[in-house]
Amino acid sequence: MSFKITVASGKGGTGKTTVATNLYWSLVKNFDNDTLLVDCDVEEPDDLLFFKNAILRSEVKVTQAVPEINTSKCTYCRKCVEYCEYNAITVIPPVQYASIAPDLCHSCGACLYACQDDALIEKDHEIGLMSGYDVGFGKGLLEGRLKIGSAAQTPVIRRVKKEALDAASVILFDAPPGTSCSVVTSVLDADFVIMVTEPTPFGLHDLKIAVELIREMDLPFGVVINKAGLGDRAVYDYLEDEGIDILEEIPFNEEYARKFSEGMILSRIDKNYAIHYQKIIRKILEFKQQ
């Protein structure tokens, strides 16, 4: 069984991708070469930007099955309408009208179960792309990318997670920001969640919501404070009150920020920076052995 670590955050821009890509580098170099990085932020997958020598290894279309109604078989019983939780089906018996709105359909399959007349056929709609990359070290990067115009994040994330299942001994997931369905899907079944926050009022506000979510899901987690030195002490007070582990503080440094924005993995260029990530890994390994 592989060990699954998910990097999440409430607020966007706190440094999930920074932490995920640097952690991947540190894991591969210092601990286990058999590590895979998975970008679950399918709306904006950007882990790839940090691997200049990435070579595309595989590309798979992600599809979602959306049913269509065959009106020659439909008896307009409206059973499918009753079953549909998302109001995607319109059936008007007096005028013999039946149709399904693909943009509202969640592909749950309830209507297929409901239909007694065999009037529903599932057709594949493309919703995204799953790509695997060799990045020159470790097991590489797997990313999901949502098709423009599609809103079906969770099916793409699920597909990517299925592909990643047991593909390496350590799997590092980079989750999307926020606390919505796509985040829940990304952190689900993680062995450890790293929450990245920043010491600002916004960082704290969103961290509280994210902590609530992860506690509700009953997952072990720790917090990384990125951009330490900025903002105020409120995040520290909150973490102390709640008894939450601070895995590591990564100090803010304008020079690092500049290099990062040029697409460089920081622990690759600066030993002092790499130490922070080695500390995080050590703490997670301690947890794993418990």
Binding site: N87, A88, V91, I92, P94, Y97, L104
Partner: peptide
């Protein structure tokens, strides 16, 4: 309704003839 209220309302209108 959380979604497709317009469609459902139109359904009612059409059913009422």
């Amino acid at each position: 309704q959380s979604s497709a209220a317009g469609t459902t309302a139109a359904e009612t209108v059409i059913e009422q003839g």
